[in-house]
């Protein structure tokens, strides 16, 4: 493979990874409760990968070691936030291995690259925490090693790895209590899988569809409850119909409260809203279609109860 072809390939891979991350940036931001719930993981990962994309866009064709060095250095310099720093180590681990591979990339080299990434990521922390980007990259490396002896094209292996990564991310709430309590999966791990999804699509030539969006629906719903609300009732219900207009229902509900989520498709929409008038919200639902699964909870009562318990210690100020 010529140096020019290598550079074009890397540009394509990084561009695809960036596009995939950018598309899910908001969702990943919303998942971010660990290590600090500041809602910026998707943004940080996107900025970090963008720094790599910018570097390869202006790089000259070079031998593999020099190209790998350019990529690793761009990730290091462009690393943003905790997740960006971990990603920069992962990129460096991959780049170090692929720099040495003479030609093309096969499943065996992929496994070695992911193992290098996992080792590099783990090396830089004294006490690694499971249920984070770290455990997701390690599980990807293990799966790649298990499958590296199987015959078949690289694209097939990468597709399997995306599936395995999705499962690893889905398990993160079982590994890390703070995720389970917030009802979310790990944001950094989810970002890593989106990055791999983009890379894989670039290799196979076809977009890789996401697993059903169940996780993000649950996640958005519970993450919202971490914020105090000035409205009294948390109201959740499902609207069923033939040609439901999600945008219209959302616009109508918006006037009634905050923390609004309307997710689903034209036949079923799940609604979540904090409002002082749950009746009005349900009426909007019955106007649009038939409603089901109604749950109304008095959140101010829950908040007052929590504050009573915490009254010995003043609540921390928001940062």
């Amino acid at each position: 493979m010529t140096a020019e072809a290598d550079l074009e390939l890397v540009r394509g891979l990084v561009g695809a990874a960036l596009a995939s991350l950018e598309a899910s940036r908001g969702r990943i931001d919303d998942l971010n409760v660990y290590p600090v719930p500041d809602g910026d993981t998707g943004t940080n990962l996107t900025l970090t990968v963008r720094a790599v994309a910018d570097a390869v866009a202006t790089a000259d064709a070079a031998e593999r070691p020099a190209l790998a060095h350019t990529v690793a250095r761009a990730a290091l310099m462009g690393a943003r936030g905790n997740s960006g720093v971990i990603l920069s180590q992962i990129v460096r681990g991959v780049a170090d291995v692929l720099a040495e591979s003479p030609n093309g990339v096969d499943p065996l080299q992929t496994a070695r690259a992911l193992r290098g990434a996992s080792n590099a990521a783990y090396r830089a922390v004294r006490r690694p925490v499971e249920g984070t980007m770290l455990s997701v990259i390690r599980e990807l490396a293990e799966e790649a090693e298990r499958r590296s002896g199987e015959p078949g094209p690289l694209g097939g292996l990468l597709l399997e790895l995306v599936r395995h990564g999705e499962e690893a991310v889905a398990r993160t709430p079982e590994q890390l209590d703070v995720l389970r309590d917030a009802g979310v999966v790990d944001a950094g791990g989810a970002g890593l899988v989106e990055l791999l999804r983009g890379l894989t699509g670039s290799v196979t030539g076809e977009p890789v569809p996401a697993a059903p969006e169940v996780a993000s629906e649950i996640a958005g719903h519970d993450a919202i409850h971490l914020e105090p609300s000035r409205y009294r009732y948390c109201t959740v219900f499902v609207v069923e119909g033939d040609a439901l207009d999600q945008d219209e229902l959302e616009a109508q509900l918006e006037r009634l409260g905050d923390s609004l989520l309307v997710v689903g498709d034209a036949t079923a929409l799940k609604v979540h809203i904090h409002t002082d008038d749950p009746g009005a919200a349900l009426t909007l639902g019955t106007t649009a279609g038939t409603i089901d699964g109604v749950e109304i909870a008095n959140i101010q009562e829950q908040q007052e109860e929590r504050e009573r318990r915490l009254s010995l210690v003043p609540t921390t100020r928001a940062r």
Binding site: M77, A79, S88, R92
Partner: peptide
């Protein structure tokens, strides 16, 4: 660890 972005 060496090789990380110290500021971040």
């Amino acid at each position: 660890e060496y090789g990380l972005n110290l500021a971040e």
